[in-house]
Design a protein around this nucleic acid. Structure first.
Lengths: 204, 204
DNA sequence: GACTCATTTCATCACGCGTTGAAAAAAGGT
DNA sequence: ACCTTTTTTCAACGCGTGATGAAATGAGTC
């Protein structure tokens, strides 16, 4: 059962067997812990413990807690170009519907953890808010609106963002019922028309 | 400019002159610091410093940091009955508009700090999310929807909440432009019709 | 004016944090 | 086999946190 490993006391030092990759283990653990603790709430020691390694590995591999955070959480979860294409692929009057389906699809997949992590990180890390601004508004929503050719692209993009963010907050963070448990079809019927108005309707 | 106060060194101990109320000073300072630091980010020392008293006063007057938080932040900012009345006072087809005006009015008044504090507190304090659930959905929005006599009151109330929260997040937390700086009239024209649809429109 | 007691500051506690440097152990090259 | 390099654990540092108990001080009461 043991090959000179499996001690209860101090772990053996030195380089491990080739198969194990502590860097990846740390990244994975960091995503989990940052998700449900936020940046300040998550401790380096907790992350290292979940990864099954020593806390000093964080500094060795990522320089600092911030470095790990940047690598683990601040990477874009999905290629924005692909997402924009997917949202634009189909009749323009159904873009609102596709937005609801895609975002709920992406965020439901992680039980809302991804979104909750985003919100937590925003509130504790100003840098994250800036990254989000860039990604959400300019890379994603503004390009979407521009493709549709409506005026006031920036305002429409941010209006869009307000309903999408609101959807995320109520569904994944504060979890108001029946909103939080409503199926996708209900969400689409209720929200898509409002998004569509922000996209192509009369807002002045 | 001074009346035997204003020393640079150690402060004088003992009971202060009758006019000063350190309890109130602490509450006021706590609101400010909790607002832009969140529960975990705010330190007892920082709050006490802003109040101009010793950190030990927090424990003396409120038992603990949590006790202070409960007294300072978890109180309802406005009487819900008054708010509901104000929102219902007028033509039913303009309720959406009054919602936008009132919430922006309330939140803009503190530069968004009140709302930002709420969001920060939600993410760091599960207890706050529960209080918000009660206040926002049941005390406020559901009663509103019921008065209007539409079916699916709960769903409509939470849909309403999603757009209102989204408005707050984009305007006060992530500060997407031009949304964050748009004047009330622009907000009303853009958002009120969507709220109105959630309230009285067809969502099935 | 003396006594009492609530109020306030100060000094300090134990704890947990992120980080660091050294030592140990394995891998890789020659 | 030896030496170098990389990886890993360990022990500890300095700092800041929330909390505590004692001493100091002045307001209120008789």
């Amino acid at each position: 059962m043991n090959e000179s490993s499996r001690q209860i006391g101090p772990k053996r030092r030195g380089r491990r067997a080739g198969g194990e990759d502590t860097r990846e283990a740390l990244l994975s653990a960091a995503r989990e812990v940052f998700v449900d603790r936020g940046f300040e709430g998550a401790t380096v020691r907790a992350i290292a413990a979940r990864a099954g390694v020593d806390a000093a590995m964080v500094n060795h591999w990522f320089g600092s807690k911030e470095g790990l955070f940047a690598k683990a959480v601040l990477q874009v979860p999905i290629d924005p170009n692909v997402l924009v294409e997917r949202l634009l692929d189909g009749p323009p009057e159904e873009v609102g519907e596709r937005i609801v389906r895609n975002f709920i699809g992406i965020w439901d997949a992680t039980g809302g953890g991804q979104f909750a992590a985003m919100v937590r990180s925003i509130t504790s890390h100003e840098q994250v808010a800036e990254v989000l601004r860039q990604f959400f508004v300019h890379t994603l929503l503004k390009r979407l609106v521009c493709h549709l050719g409506s005026p006031d692209a920036e305002l429409r993009a941010t209006l869009l963002a307000s309903q999408i963010f609101g959807m995320g907050v109520v569904r994944y963070v504060v979890r108001f019922e029946p909103f939080a448990s409503a199926d996708v079809e209900t969400m689409v019927r209720a929200i898509a028309p409002n998004l569509q108005r922000y996209l192509t309707g009369d807002i002045s």
